[in-house]
C-alpha cells in the first residue's frame, strides 16, 4: 500500500469514535474601542511598527520623507508615489535585493492587533516586502477591521495565492531575549493612514 492509502486506512480504523460535532464559533465582542484608527495605531506601536497620520493638504509622506530622501532605490507599488524601481519589470525576486524602501497599500488593517494584510496583488512581487530594508504601508482608515475574527471572514484568504498579515517589522529576541528589529526581513514598518485614490501623485 502507498503511504497515502496506509495513513488514510489507519486513520479510518483509529479515529476517536463518537459525534464530535464542529462547534459554532460565536461572534465575540471586540476588544477595542470605537476609535479604530487610534486603537490600530496604539497596537501597531506596541508591535514595533510606526504610525503616521498626515496633516490634510500637506505632504502625506512627510513622516517618511527623510527616509525616502536618503534612499537610493525605492520600489513603489502604489499610484500615490513613484519610485525608481519598477516592480512590473522585475524578472526575479532576487533583483530586489538592493531596495532601500518599498511602498505598498494594505488590503485592510486589524485594530485588535495592529496588523495589515497584503496579497500578491498589492505586493506585485511578494519578496519586496521582505527584501527591502524598510516598508512603508498606505492604509485607508475606512479599511480598518475591528478584530482578527472579522479579518478571517474576508474572502481574500480563499482567493489569494499568497496572503500575509504583517504586524510591525521583522523581529527577533532569540539571543537572551533582546529585541531586535530587522532579523531577516524589513528593519522598519511605517503605516501611513491615507484614503484610497485621493492623494495626488508625488515623486519620491
Amino acid at each position: 500500500m502507498s503511504a497515502r492509502e496506509d495513513t488514510l486506512a489507519r486513520i479510518a480504523q483509529n479515529r476517536p469514535k463518537g459525534d464530535h460535532a464542529l462547534p459554532v464559533v460565536p461572534n465575540f465582542a471586540p476588544l477595542v474601542g470605537d476609535d479604530l484608527e487610534a486603537e490600530f495605531g496604539e497596537r501597531l506601536k506596541r508591535m514595533g511598527g510606526r504610525i503616521a497620520v498626515p496633516v490634510p493638504g500637506e505632504d502625506p509622506f512627510a513622516a517618511v520623507r527623510e527616509r525616502l530622501d536618503g534612499a537610493a532605490v525605492i520600489a513603489s507599488a502604489v499610484p500615490e508615489i513613484s519610485g525608481n524601481r519598477d516592480l512590473a519589470q522585475v524578472a526575479r525576486p532576487q533583483d530586489l535585493a538592493d531596495v532601500d524602501v518599498a511602498i505598498v497599500r494594505a488590503v485592510f488593517g486589524v485594530a485588535e492587533t495592529g496588523s495589515v494584510l497584503f496579497t500578491q496583488r498589492e505586493l506585485q512581487v511578494n519578496a519586496v516586502a521582505y527584501l527591502a530594508q524598510h516598508l512603508v504601508v498606505l492604509l485607508d482608515p475606512a479599511d480598518i477591521l475591528v478584530n482578527i475574527q472579522a479579518a478571517y471572514r474576508r474572502a481574500d484568504f480563499a482567493q489569494a495565492a499568497y496572503a500575509v498579515l504583517h504586524t510591525g517589522p521583522s523581529a527577533t529576541a532569540d539571543i537572551e531575549g533582546v529585541l531586535i528589529h530587522g532579523a531577516q526581513g524589513v528593519r522598519s514598518l511605517t503605516v501611513i493612514l491615507c484614503p484610497r485614490g485621493t492623494t495626488e501623485n508625488a515623486t519620491a
Partner: peptide, 21 residues
C-alpha cells in the same frame, strides 16, 4: 531586563518578540 531592546515609536520599551530577559 530588556534595557538593550529596540524601542517603539514613542520611546517606550517593547516586548513583542520572544521574551524579555
Amino acid at each position: 531586563p530588556a534595557a538593550e531592546s529596540d524601542r517603539g515609536q514613542d520611546g517606550r520599551p517593547l516586548q513583542h518578540a520572544e521574551a524579555a530577559t
